[in-house]
Every structure is written in structure tokens, then in C-alpha cells.
């Protein structure tokens, strides 16, 4: 597999978007309070602006409809957001799951394929469906999800964990190679893979021929949602070749910030952490702690 001429350097801290869309792994009440607070795009931008001004300039986001509003704001004020980058993750799983319940597997795929005016896409889609050619389908679905980011900097494109983990379980290895190839060739970006099963993901990505992949998974001191066990995670961090992005570093608030970050940066191979802050104090506090514990040398 061809590698980009120069590997993209990820920032130490990435801003996630769970908090904006009512996702909270700890409490439904908290999730709802956040959904209420962030229902206006101004409230979302306020957090993103605080993060940006603190030096957190990467937004790791889903392709939720409302991310399109964030994208528009950033596009409209290029000076304000100089150097701002998006790391989009796809697909937005609930959108598809609900569509599958309503329209069936095939109906759901049809619904999300680009339509109207895109003759090439329509032809590609129809032909792919008819031939059971997943390469055509995967690339089309990626293109459909990437459309909202046109013209913006997206140096890493993620495949979301529900899809990654389902493909791992099914041993649908080809899909990873297809995704990686397409993201590199069409978008000049690094493919990233989010997973709740880090050791298994690394095995599958190796089988797929994706070298030194960027992989994001839960990594935290208490082993929360580190499937296969914390020891297995520490073993792959020691021995395998990949670029680790840690999420759930604070285990939804179960670990105090300093303790969580001291532990995380004592692990090898951690290039970045992604966290979903919603208060200025949390953003500034986390950034300051990271700068203290894991200063960027280059």
C-alpha cells in the first residue's frame, strides 16, 4: 500500500463531538442536559472557539447533520479558523441503523447513496449494487459522507467503531483495504480506524495490509471498555506498529484528570488523546495538563 509522502502529524489533543449530540456513557440525564445546552449552533461554536484559542485546533467529529453547521461556520470565517482541521468519522451509525429498521439493509444503502444530478455516482451505485461489488459501494458511501467537508482540511478520515468492529467480527478484511486506499487516493488523507477491540483490530488491519495504521480506542487506567483486557492493550502498545489515539481517557469521569493523563502518557505509542469537553475550564485544564505531562518536542 502506498503511503503519503509525509505522514500527517497529529496534535496531542483532539476535540471530540459526543458532548454536542447527547452522547454520554455515564448518564442519560447528563446526556440530555448536554443535548439541551448544545441545541443551538452558537453554544457548540463557543466550545470549539475556546478549544481553538487554547491551541486545540483539530475537531474529530461524526457526520451528524449538525456537524454540517459547524463546517459552514468554519468555512465562512477562514481567517478566524486558520489551521483548523477536521477529522471526520463515518458512517454516523444511528442514521443507518434506524434506516435499516425502516427500509431493510438494501433500502438503507440505497437511501444514502448520492442521488440527483450525480450521474456518475448513480451509475457507479447501481452497477455496484447489481454486481455485489463492495468496493464501489464503500467508496460511494465515503464520498457521500465527505461531501460536506469539501474544500476543508481533513488530514485523517475515520471509520467508526460500530462498522470497524462489525467488519472485524465478520472477517470482512477487504473492506479495510478498500477504505484505506480510497481515503488516501481520493482525499490525500490518512485512514483512521476507531475500535472497541484494539488487539483484534490490529490483527485484522495487518491482514488487510494497512501499514502503521492510525487506530483510536478506549485507553484508560481502569480498563473501561478495553475489550480483551487492559493487559492485552498494554501488550500491543508495547509491541505493535501503529499510531494510537486514546479516547475515554478519563473513563467518563471515573478517573481524576491528572491521574488519568499521567497514566496515559506513561504508555508507549500514544500520539494523541481525544476528549469531549463542554466547559472552558475543562478544556483549559486538560490542555495545560497535557502540555505539562507530554510536551511536544518538535
Amino acid at each position: 500500500m502506498t503511503m503519503p509522502a509525509r505522514a500527517h502529524v497529529m496534535k496531542r489533543v483532539l476535540l471530540g463531538d459526543n458532548q454536542f449530540f447527547g452522547v454520554n456513557h455515564m448518564s442519560e440525564e447528563k446526556a440530555r442536559a448536554q443535548a439541551m445546552r448544545f441545541q443551538g449552533i452558537d453554544a457548540v461554536m463557543e466550545v470549539i472557539d475556546t478549544a481553538y484559542d487554547t491551541g486545540i485546533t483539530t475537531f474529530m467529529c461524526t457526520t451528524h447533520d449538525r456537524v454540517a453547521d459547524v463546517v459552514e461556520r468554519v468555512r465562512a470565517d477562514a481567517d478566524r479558523y486558520a489551521g483548523f482541521t477536521f477529522y471526520p468519522g463515518m458512517p454516523y451509525a444511528h442514521k443507518y441503523a434506524d434506516a435499516v429498521t425502516e427500509s431493510g439493509m438494501l433500502g438503507a444503502v440505497r437511501r444514502f447513496l448520492p442521488e440527483g444530478g450525480l450521474l456518475d455516482a448513480a451509475v457507479r451505485g447501481g452497477r455496484s449494487l447489481a454486481r455485489k461489488d463492495v468496493e464501489g459501494l464503500i467508496t460511494l458511501l465515503v464520498d457521500a459522507e465527505m461531501a460536506m467537508f469539501r474544500g476543508l482540511d481533513t488530514p485523517v478520515v475515520w471509520l467508526q467503531n460500530v462498522v470497524v468492529d462489525m467488519l472485524i467480527g465478520l472477517r470482512f478484511t477487504d473492506a479495510f483495504a478498500i477504505f484505506a486506499r480510497h481515503v488516501r487516493s481520493r482525499y490525500g488523507a490518512e485512514p483512521g480506524f476507531i475500535t472497541m477491540n484494539l488487539p483484534a483490530a490490529l490483527d485484522t488491519l495487518e491482514d488487510a495490509g494497512v501499514e502503521n495504521p492510525i487506530v483510536c480506542s478506549n485507553i484508560n487506567k481502569i480498563g473501561f471498555r478495553m475489550s480483551g483486557g487492559i493487559e492485552a492493550y498494554q501488550r500491543v502498545l508495547e509491541t505493535r506498529s501503529f499510531r494510537a489515539v486514546a479516547m475515554s481517557v478519563f473513563a467518563s469521569g471515573a478517573i481524576p484528570p491528572r491521574e488519568a493523563l499521567e497514566w496515559i502518557f506513561a504508555q508507549p505509542r500514544i500520539e494523541s488523546i481525544v476528549f469531549g469537553a463542554s466547559s472552558a475550564a475543562h478544556i483549559r485544564g486538560t490542555k495545560a495538563l497535557v502540555d505539562e505531562l507530554a510536551p511536544v518536542s518538535d
Binding site: M26, S27, D165, I222, G223, R225, S227, G229, S252
Partner: peptide, 20 residues
């Protein structure tokens, strides 16, 4: 008490520990 302490880790995770 929260899911972080009430949930037993699983060998393979997809959509939720309970399914595995």
C-alpha cells in the same frame, strides 16, 4: 452507581457489552 463500575468487561465489544 454507573455503568463504568457495574459492567463486566467483555472479550469482544460490538454495540454494547450485553450483546457479547
Amino acid at each position: 452507581r454507573y455503568t463504568t463500575e457495574l459492567t463486566e468487561p467483555v472479550r469482544f465489544y460490538l454495540r454494547g457489552e450485553e450483546y457479547s
